[in-house]
């Protein structure tokens, strides 16, 4: 019988997550923000859009850490963790795209042109390409994982691909965007991460927001892991029962 690790049952960080997210949403929509040209009130999206990417990267990092654990111990439960963290990471990546698209349609899109028409020009954005690569890599990871039947081999091959892909991907999404011209903020460094870039009232919401969304991602993943482990145990029990009856 596989057991999920203890931290998944603890309640304190789930409560913390809920509190932080309530604070983020209330504070994010009500606290004053600096009035900048072209950005105006849309800056509030910072609390949602940037946090999605942070959560995505954290989840992918968890995924690779569990893949390494798997390769060190060959314990199949780590393989389940790695996969579930990867899928939740993909979910957050898609949400990041969605929030980014809303933000973009108010700030970048040419007001004389419908958003749909300016899409081709905007999609050349290096940051968008970078994330598209990240999502494609993790989709490829899922495809690879599902294409192998044997359980041990599946776990091993997909863990190897996960490590390799992560090692190739992260230099790529941190370095390449800085080499290409871009509309997206963050050409010179980490956008919104340096305290002097950002208004102090906004920081008071921004850091808790990152933590809150990341915790939410981990929470979702732990639920999925528990479900997956439950299903696995159920399956192995079903396979055992006919033998024990006879």
């Amino acid at each position: 019988m596989k057991q999920p690790p203890k931290y998944m049952y603890r309640t304190w960080w789930k409560l913390l997550c809920v509190v932080l997210l309530i604070y983020t949403i209330v504070g994010g929509l009500l606290f004053p923000v600096p009035d900048l040209p072209a950005l105006e009130e849309t800056i509030r999206n910072l609390y949602f859009h940037v946090c999605m990417w942070m959560a995505m990267m954290t989840l992918f990092s968890f995924s690779i850490v569990y893949s390494i654990f798997y390769l060190r111990s060959f314990d199949l439960k780590y393989d389940i963790y790695a996969r579930q963290f990867a899928t939740t990471g993909i979910l957050f990546g898609l949400l990041g795209y969605a929030t980014g698209a809303i933000w973009m349609s108010y700030t970048w899109a040419d007001p004389n042109n419908p958003v749909f028409k300016s899409f081709g020009a905007l999609a050349r954005e290096p940051k968008l390409i970078g994330t598209a690569i990240a999502l494609l890599i993790y989709f490829a990871y899922l495809v690879l994982r599902d294409s192998i039947q044997d359980m041990d081999k599946r776990a091993r091959v997909s863990a190897v691909y996960n490590v390799f892909a992560y090692a190739m991907l992260f230099p790529a999404i941190w370095i390449i965007p800085r080499l290409l011209p871009s509309l997206h903020p963050g050409q010179e460094g980490n956008p919104a991460m340096k305290p002097k870039d950002i208004d102090s009232t906004m920081l008071m919401v921004f850091y808790p927001a990152i933590a809150g969304w990341t915790l939410l991602g981990i929470w979702i993943t732990t639920l999925k892991i528990r479900l997956a482990i439950f299903r696995e145990n159920k399956l192995s029990q079903n396979q055992k029962n006919p033998l024990s009856d006879s």
Binding site: I129, V157, I176
Partner: peptide, 29 residues
Amino acid sequence: IAARAQQNAAIMAVLGFPLIIPQLILLMK
């Protein structure tokens, strides 16, 4: 990796294209 998955070259394209894009961008630049 693809050989371990006992697949044809198709899975290699799926696995490889996203990984190679950054290098290709760099090379073209």
